[in-house]
């Protein structure tokens, strides 16, 4: 099993959903489908962060909804309001781990955690080359990088599935505070 397949399997075990696309042009269509399947008919914006410009442009241009991207120097209050009013948050990630089925996001000038937190759906877009074999090796690499660059992001968030709880009668429910649906969109290289 490739690292990508292993990630896929574990991510799904964690109640996450998987989409594989060959080229970025396919992305807006998939995202539209996701938003529609959630049953939102109003004009809810898509919020984005931590994406390469070509990707975010593709989403902005290809979607019927308005799309807002977090970018360096952005107004954080306004971006937070967009996130609060959004159905779908789309982000990149710093790295993923196959054995845990997890993705890791750093809060910095390019990446915001809010699109992964406030909207009911979060889609994280990653390339297979970003997937570490194990969560432990990914953490080690992250540490090496931080040491070399002398920089630790103030917030790091590892996501391994949708927001969930079993606090009432032990029954598993998705989407307590964070997203109830998390999609990993793997861009094949």
């Amino acid at each position: 099993m490739t690292v990508g397949q292993q990630f896929e399997q574990k991510w799904q075990e964690n109640s996450g959903k998987i989409i594989r696309i060959r080229q970025i042009a396919e992305l807006p269509g998939f995202l539209e489908g996701i938003v529609r399947s959630y049953g939102h008919h109003g004009n809810m914006p898509i919020v984005m962060a931590g994406l390469p410009k070509t990707w975010s442009d593709a989403i902005s241009q290809g979607s019927a909804q308005a799309a807002y991207l977090w970018a360096e120097g952005g107004d954080k209050e306004r971006f937070r309001q967009y996130c609060e009013g959004s159905t779908l948050g789309v982000t990149g990630c710093a790295w993923a781990a196959a054995d845990a089925g997890s993705v890791s996001l750093y809060s910095d000038s390019e990446q915001s955690l809010l699109p992964s937190l406030l909207p009911p759906i979060h889609a994280v877009i990653l390339k297979e080359s970003q997937i570490a074999e194990t969560f432990q090796s990914g953490l080690q690499a992250m540490y090496q990088h931080a040491k070399e660059t002398h920089f630790w992001p103030s917030l790091i968030k590892v996501i391994a599935g949708p927001s969930m709880t079993a606090d009432i009668e032990g029954q598993l429910i998705l989407g307590v505070h964070g997203p109830q649906d998390v999609y990993a969109v793997i861009v094949e290289e």
């Binding site: 954080k76 054995d99 089925g101 969560f135 992001p153 917030l155 590892v158 996501i159 391994a160 964070g178």
Partner: peptide
């Protein structure tokens, strides 16, 4: 009995000026 809980958050400090949250 899971490899990770859904969220593992690591805090290193207050918000850096360019961040959207924290």
């Amino acid at each position: 009995g899971r490899h990770l809980s859904s969220y593992t958050t690591m805090v290193h400090g207050p918000r850096q000026s360019a961040s959207a949250e924290g």
